[in-house]
Write a protein that binds this DNA or RNA. Structure first.
Lengths: 238, 238
DNA sequence: GTAGAATTCAAACGAGCGTTTGAATCGGGC
DNA sequence: GCCCGATTCAAACGCTCGTTTGAATTCTAC
């Protein structure tokens, strides 16, 4: 009983404890994705994981800490892989400006790798991540911004060099749009029912999906900034 | 007491009942936006609206029906305005292909008008809408797809003519990306903390926001489809 | 001004929630 | 073979939830 909080630190992640913890994380990943954070109860979660109700609080502390653990397990490696790919690209181009496409690919490829690796959560996790982006809960927003701070900063510098016609502020917004389209798309599947005529074969081919997304995002990033485009006119439609 | 359900049908929306109903809708719009559907309790909601706890069930039936009423109140007029603008554009161009920009503007302008009209909910509602897009609750997904079905179908036909180099399937995906970037952006504000260096003046200027978003989306829509772009390479970053 | 419907109100219902507790059980090291 | 920390377990705690109820009040029409 006195071990509840200390357990996580004093005990290495050995097989015996990892088993229960992993079962909880796997069930949480699926259920949080399907029902959202608030609507997923620890009772249904522990039942699905075949563990005792108290196991979540014993191993993770609180429901919120469990949610963060679910995200961290996949997100840390994926974002680290992104940074490694970006650094390798920087090394290979030797200080010369990198192409916009290649920078974007270093963002998409780790996500695609994760989506294809069922052992690392696959599409389930990416859908969960896309939904987490839009969750209003403050602890989720703070957690995500902390998790992404370094990665976003690095990419902003890289894109700035690749897109010299964009101001820092303009680029900030465009990266925002990119993340929006990406997270919305990854979270999607169900949302696609808004639009008919998506074939079943197409629907679950993540590589094809990103190959459709990439040209769209690259073209958007490269577009001339707003000064050169027609102004929105509010008065009339013609 | 026997009037609970019949009341909504037998009574016109007169001033006396509209007062309570409107106060509930206004409070719900704000609280659902701030905390999400699940995390907003009817107790906090009715307290904020200065009405009795039972008033929600009396006037709207259930919490879910209240949520749908909140969305319908703003969404129906906005989507109808979109269709009207699109139809006027079709009439003015007389069957000739319309420009991609103009079609997109008929989507953005009603959203912008709504954002600027505090009496119609303003930015609050658009943020709520952006969050509703990502909500996993099935009743929300079904409601939204029903609400958007007609509008999406019309725009798909219009864009198909304006973008003849795109297949129907390719366009379906691109509209998906557009809706993603749009809803994510509208839901944003808080999410912008992921990216630093957004000035306070910039942050709340919705017209400027859409003027930044529009060139990005137009360029993405016009981009050549995937066959002509470089393939994603999974093996290596260089 | 009174009848009858529409609306508001305080109170309670039953259910489900996240978390805590303390005893029971397990498992490796001496 | 026993001991002690790590883990599991059933039970309960206190709380909040959405909804219902039936009486009290307000409003409308004659």
């Amino acid at each position: 009983m006195a071990a509840t909080r200390l357990a996580r630190k004093s005990v290495a992640v050995d097989a015996t404890s990892a088993d229960t913890k992993t079962r909880i994380l796997d069930a949480a990943e699926t259920l949080f994705m399907e029902h959202g954070f608030e609507a997923t109860s620890l009772r249904s979660l522990t039942t699905a994981a075949s563990v005792n109700l108290a196991a979540v609080n014993y191993h993770f502390g609180t429901k919120e800490e469990l949610f963060q653990a679910v995200l961290t397990r996949r997100l840390d490696p994926m974002n680290q892989e992104r940074i490694e790919l970006l650094e390798r690209l920087e090394r290979d181009t030797g200080g010369k400006p990198m192409s916009c496409e290649k920078i974007l690919f270093t963002m998409l490829i780790p996500a695609l790798r994760l989506a294809r690796d069922e052992k690392r959560g696959g599409k389930n996790f990416l859908r969960l991540l896309g939904r987490a982006y839009a969750d209003p809960a403050p602890f989720i927003r703070h957690f995500l911004s902390a998790q992404y701070a370094e990665m976003i900063g690095r990419y902003k510098e890289a894109f700035l060099k690749a897109l010299p016609h964009l101001s820092r502020q303009e680029l900030t917004w465009r990266l925002h749009f990119v993340m929006g389209a990406l997270s919305y798309t990854l979270a999607g599947t169900d949302a696609l029912k808004l639009f008919a005529q998506v074939t079943a074969a197409d629907k679950y081919d993540d590589e094809l999906l990103l190959q459709r997304l990439a040209p769209f995002l690259v073209a958007g990033l490269k577009a001339p900034p707003l000064a050169q485009s027609r102004k929105l006119e509010l008065v009339s439609g013609d």
